[in-house]
């Protein structure tokens, strides 16, 4: 379980996150939504251990985050960044193989290569294995990065359940690959991986998340089931846009439609 208690983050006098408490149990997908500058990415950075919080306490699998070593953390949680700045012409296979780093003692084995192949298959990028990463489109790069973090937490860890942090993972993706990305996340969730995803698309969040946390000005505005959180009143208050919430024709989730 990932548990964070009254997290506060202050950077040069400015409060970016204030009194946020989060729980991500194994096999749960929590979507964090909110307007630009609400503190979503900051919260993700703190929860993933990239930055220490100014206030509050974070526990991963029962142990405080800073008591885990960097390598131990890397063996049970992976982070997909908003955009990756890799500008060296690695082959796609080699980029995904970098994801195996925390599990390697010496050279990588055929087992690691098999995981790389499966991870590429999971994101629909099998044929791109030998292409130089730098020749890919933005969306293809994003899928390779997803394969890399999948390879990192592909197998169960002896340290406890695994976690995946996704920071706006559907940026740059077409609608088919947006849903494919979220389905990959759902599959991982079914294997017991706890997932925290920062999303901009409220409908993606509504369709795939178990619970949604709505943030505004660094604070939690609402937290709960999609249908409870995504109400027209609350969306109007937080995003300043009038919407109608209708029923999804086939799935049991709300659909948010902006109205003029």
């Amino acid at each position: 379980m990932l548990e964070a208690l009254s997290i506060g983050v202050q950077v040069s006098g400015k409060r970016l996150v204030q009194g946020v408490s989060v729980e991500v149990p194994p096999g749960h997908l929590l979507a964090v939504v909110g307007p630009n500058g609400a503190g979503k990415s900051t919260l993700l950075r703190v929860l993933s251990g990239e930055h220490p919080p100014t206030k509050g306490q974070i526990c991963l699998n029962g142990t405080e985050l800073h008591h885990w070593s960097a390598k131990q953390l890397a063996q049970m949680r992976a982070v997909l960044p908003q955009n990756s700045s890799l500008s060296f012409p690695f082959r796609v296979l080699d980029v995904v193989l970098i994801g195996r780093t925390p599990h390697l003692r010496s050279a990588e084995s055929s087992h690691d290569h098999a995981i790389v192949d499966q991870a590429l298959q999971a994101v629909d990028m099998s044929e791109f294995g030998r292409r130089p990463y730098t020749t890919l489109s933005g969306g293809e790069k994003q899928r390779v990065q997803l394969a890399r973090v999948l390879a990192q937490i592909w197998e169960e860890s002896s340290l406890g359940p695994r976690y995946l942090f996704l920071d706006e993972p559907t940026n740059n993706l077409d609608i088919a690959h947006q849903h494919r990305m979220m389905r990959v996340a759902s599959n991982l969730k079914d294997q017991g991986v706890g997932i925290l995803a920062v999303l901009h698309d409220l409908n993606l969040a509504a369709q795939y998340a178990d619970t949604i946390m709505l943030m505004q000005n660094g604070q939690v505005s609402a937290n709960g089931f999609p249908s409870d959180v995504l109400t027209p009143d609350r969306i109007k208050k937080v995003f300043m846009i009038p919407v109608k919430v209708i029923k999804h024709p086939t799935a049991l989730c709300p659909v948010i439609v902006p109205v003029p």
Binding site: S48, E50, K71, A74, P81, S84, S85, L86, I98
Partner: peptide, 10 residues
């Protein structure tokens, strides 16, 4: 990949 990404990789 970037400093943050390397940190996440342990």
């Amino acid at each position: 990949l970037g400093e943050a990404e390397a940190t996440h990789l342990g």
